[in-house]
Design a protein around this nucleic acid. Sequence first.
DNA 1: CCATTTCTGGACTGAACAGTCAAAAAGGAA
DNA 2: TTCCTTTTTGACTGTTCAGTCCAGAAATGG
Lengths: 188, 188
Amino acid sequence: MARAKEFDKEAAVDAAIGAFREHGFEGTSTGMLVDAMRIGRQSLYDTFGDKWQLYRAAVERYAAGETEAHIAALRSGASALDGIRAMLARVVQTAGQSCLGIGSICEFGQSRPDLSALHQAADRRLKRAATERIIEAQAVGEIDRALSAVAVADFLFASVAAIRIAARGGADRAHLQSLSEMTLRAMT
Amino acid sequence: MARAKEFDKEAAVDAAIGAFREHGFEGTSTGMLVDAMRIGRQSLYDTFGDKWQLYRAAVERYAAGETEAHIAALRSGASALDGIRAMLARVVQTAGQSCLGIGSICEFGQSRPDLSALHQAADRRLKRAATERIIEAQAVGEIDRALSAVAVADFLFASVAAIRIAARGGADRAHLQSLSEMTLRAMT
DNA sequence: CCATTTCTGGACTGAACAGTCAAAAAGGAA
DNA sequence: TTCCTTTTTGACTGTTCAGTCCAGAAATGG
């Protein structure tokens, strides 16, 4: 055996997430990453390969955490609709920090298949969970039965993106709250 | 007097818009701009100052054109609601190209006041026009009178952003169509 | 046709960039 | 301790970047 790593890999990725979400991939230099992650330059390259692979690792970890939080909120409510409300409330509350997922999609669109694959995987997981909860809500009449549950789930996460972009553009809490109310209105 | 400019400044900015909307500010090099705009490197610096000023000019012109198109669509319909439908239909149809406004907000957030000022100006103009039309629609009962017209306008443009991001993320026409229908559902 | 200005193209500059190297330091196993 | 392996550190490399400079060609109006 030999010397053990001094830093925590996941904590380092979290720090990278913080840098990338604020400045994007192109706007974040390796110097900024080294500073933010508090590790040596070589450790970065040894551990993650290169800047792009680190970015992918950051997007993947961010997506996993965000997906988990969304699903936990969805399941938290007493009723299914309460779960959806809780999810939107969390989005409004945390909208002060920009979303790495949206930033990544805006910056690269469909031009990097390896990145798109990460987004699609998170998206599927998220929409499956939401669709289940929406069907539940429809069963008890909390959400209009005439609507396609999948279409409602699509709309729900499109609205999450809308709220986050509005926040990034400078909208205040009250405006975001209003957007989330309109979102709920569309489905009930 | 002396030689007149050979290239059309506005056409050059349009070409810059094409480059910036696809790759963002940081992702677009001056070399790419010179190629896209079909002008000499020196002409670019003589005419626009530097890369950032060119970017601002691009965002400004893009915002002006997009605002104009949205307002024209809003006013095109026989009824006010038809105008809103027309606007959303145009957004769905043109969602194949990424939006420079959204890209710009995602990339820079509130960190560049000169950029934020451009966005705010376009936003105000757009929301004023939309609010007028929404009030009109409420008067004839096409849109729920219980809603705040301003909140509906906010939601409408948030939904435009949502549709465009969904498209950038790979959603097909049918999905975007469904999002626009849900948007209309929230206000009627 | 001359003076003036602009366009073009390429060469250039200093800074910032992503990524590498090699020596020093640190841990565990014998 | 000694030896081997890995991490760390900071200096280093070649490239690309934004922006400048220059010289010649082209176009306009006096």
